[in-house]
């Protein structure tokens, strides 16, 4: 459940990123950062940090191949849906002890596939995006792998007990 909540937050944030950082936006046009002294003081930033915030957006835009944004959009929407489904699977385990474990297994397999595809997608971009995505995706991949095998062992124990 806790992993489901964290994953849902993670994929929702990724979705927000893909919506906000769009190709052709102002950072790509070379407009200089607007770093007013009062804003810098308010945010506790140096002038250089403020300028680098624009570079941060440029890094994402320049490093993203054309196919990256639509693919990540699709993957994060799928991630949101399956994370929500994994939470409901958690609920159903408690509410109905006879819940079909196959539901849980299917859900974790889908999440593993999503992690694997994000990993492959990020691998095929440049080093700057790889640095942003690979490690966290690998961590989620292993979390989902553990959960899948927990579900697999529950289901095989059920079969043994029933036999």
């Amino acid at each position: 459940m806790i992993f489901g909540v964290l994953l849902l937050a993670n994929h929702s944030n990724e979705l927000l990123k893909q919506v906000v950082i769009a190709p052709g936006s102002v950072a790509e046009l070379g407009v200089p950062a607007d770093c007013r002294a009062d804003e810098l003081e308010e945010e506790g930033l140096s002038l250089l940090e403020c300028e680098l915030m624009v570079s941060n957006v440029q890094i994402t835009l320049v490093s993203s191949p054309e196919w990256f944004r639509p693919l990540m959009f699709l993957l994060s929407v799928s991630g949101v849906l399956f994370a929500a489904l994994s939470i409901s699977v958690g609920f159903s385990f408690v509410n109905n002890k006879n819940v079909n474990v196959n539901w849980a297994k299917s859900c974790f397999i889908a999440l593993i596939v999503i992690d694997a595809v994000i990993f492959i997608v990020a691998t095929n971009t440049g080093p700057l995006l790889r640095a942003q995505y690979l490690w966290s995706t690998l961590l989620w991949f292993f979390v989902h792998l553990f959960l899948l095998f927990a579900a697999v062992s529950i289901s095989s124990k059920e079969i043994e007990d029933g036999a």
Binding site: N13, V20, V26, V31, D34, C35, C50, V57
Partner: peptide
């Protein structure tokens, strides 16, 4: 948790101005 993760990210976006509306 969404607010935590999104706030850490959104505060790295360029400061707002007429041009920068991220």
């Amino acid at each position: 948790f969404f607010l935590f993760v999104s706030s850490w990210w959104m505060l790295s976006l360029p400061l707002p101005s007429e041009d920068f509306t991220y």
